[in-house]
Design a protein around this nucleic acid. Structure first.
Lengths: 297, 297
DNA sequence: ATTACTTGATAGAATAACACTATCAATGTG
DNA sequence: CACATTGATAGTGTTATTCTATCAAGTAAT
């Protein structure tokens, strides 16, 4: 039964019978039969199919949402029993928004001190993608914005507040200032994240509210690329203060606080809203709560 | 997998392999094999066995608690999909404490108006037994005391407050009074529920706190038996006011409010703390919320 | 229109899983 | 010490599951 529900989850992810089957490590007829068996036991069609996968029926959507929960719980059960026997081990799959990537270390480093047998996979994802992965149980936790766009059914643990700095060469027009306004920043050509990221949407909004017309002279989804450009002193960017501090400044590169307004957003851990959590997730949440005070401001 | 977890739940209920097997509709070797298979997949012993069932290992207890949740969710899923197709139907299994039995009608009657295809099984159980049944998914909901003894992991919906009356013949010493004190009642031989019931423990406590020495001249776990005695006019009892009102008074039988203190306890619906609830449970909770205001005082 | 490709369903065979009956060994009980 | 109780084990037949191979329906391109 649970295997069949996993088939259904894979089908929801892949929207394609053969690919879903591959993801489950079975052949396509096996997955087709599994889905059909679910439909027979429930006595309802779950999937609209023409000659190909179309979408889920309303009943299918409901089953899907139960399946997420049941499959998640079954995994949590296995994980917990394993942890009871062998101590905390396994792999934590985490995704973080690009602006928070450099801060993941603040959690993972002390976590590893405490639980050396736990391994990590950390992905860079934009916030929307991150929530989708969390929903589909493809990651165990995410680090993203908690207070800006809606999150869905998740539990959250605040980690730190993101504040904004203009990274710019000391030689440039605004480079010698102690602070600049968003209105002033709006006049500068910037290296920014792509518009699919929440950080970019936040910055665009702030620039627009200051009467500017946001346009990035260079866009990327990788923070490291933006930084590589900025540190030449020939480009400017807006980055979270903590990120700028982590990356370090050169002799010519300055991080100027941006005011009017002194905007800030909360970054934190999001985990599936399941009670009880899996032992790994629960330990990660504990570590996050432990670390957060040292990052407060 | 889910079937095996059901085996485990049955074993926890029956504490006996053969009886658990019978409850699941399989033979004893089948259930033994199922449990053993769970133990193999987890790589841990779940059950301490000597020549007979002893108890669950710590890991077994954890698996058990996950099993309750997973099996419950799987049932809820089936029920919900069925309800989507055929409207709300099926059977609601409810247990109520003896003093609340007569009030169950206040919920079931309007519920049936709304959902005529739902059938009921209503059992009389003491509060401890009721919570155990709820835990083991043997009932869908209970009606019991919400504010006296601890309940465990359940969601509660208050229904009404239970207040106490001395049911006694008008000829008897206290029979002509407008109110009596608990201290006075403590002097009267009473027909009461058995001490396994929460109502009896509440009354005993109130009598003891009034300096009395509670002793029942007749005990039963069936309210109807107590009433049959009392209505002869030759016995006395303490009953909740609403129950006395439902049963009706005879010419000689009076229901005298008991004061010092004017004790009261909240009676309400308890359902498993699962989010989302099954459609039947959810509808019952809705109905209870709808009815409660008309019973408030 | 015709052809080729994509996608999911179906048929048939091999294999694995499952549940049953019968029986046994261990532990209590009178 | 006989005897009942309890759960594990062996052996067997049945059912489920999964695979490979193939098919039919629908799309897209020529």
């Amino acid at each position: 039964m649970i295997d069949k529900l996993e088939f259904l989850l894979a089908l929801a992810r892949e929207r394609h019978f053969a690919r879903a089957a591959e993801a489950c490590g079975v052949t396509q007829p096996t997955l087709s039969a599994g889905v059909k068996q679910l439909e027979e036991t429930f006595g309802v069609l779950l999937v609209h199919r023409g000659s190909r996968f179309r979408d889920f029926t309303p009943e299918g959507e409901r089953v899907l949402s139960w399946a997420r929960r049941i499959v998640g719980d079954a995994r949590a059960m296995r994980e917990e029993v394993h942890a009871l026997k062998h101590g905390l081990n396994g792999r934590l799959r985490i995704a973080a928004v690009p602006t928070a990537l450099a801060m993941v270390e603040r959690v993972t480093t002390p976590f590893r001190e405490r639980h050396p047998n736990v391994q990590f996979t950390v992905l860079s994802r934009n916030s929307g993608e991150l929530l989708r992965l969390l929903d589909n149980l493809e990651i165990d936790a995410g680090i993203t914005y908690l207070d800006n766009e809606p999150l869905g059914r998740v539990a959250t643990i605040p980690l730190y507040r993101e504040r904004y700095r203009l990274l710019i060469s000391a030689d440039a027009p605004l480079g010698n200032r102690d602070q600049v306004t968003w209105a002033e920043v709006a006049q500068v050509p910037l290296c920014l994240l792509t518009p699919d990221t929440q950080n970019r949407r936040i910055i665009d909004r702030l620039l627009r509210e200051a009467g500017g017309d946001p346009q990035a002279s260079l866009e990327s989804n990788a923070m490291i690329l933006l930084y590589a450009h900025v540190r030449t002193g020939r480009w400017a960017s807006i980055m979270p203060a903590r990120l700028a501090a982590t990356l370090g400044l050169t002799e010519v590169l300055r991080a100027v606080p941006i005011v009017e307004p002194e905007a800030s957003h909360t970054i934190g851990l999001v985990v599936p809203a399941r009670e009880p959590m899996t032992p790994l997730t629960s330990a990660l949440a504990d570590e996050t709560r432990r670390v957060a005070p040292s990052l407060a401001d």
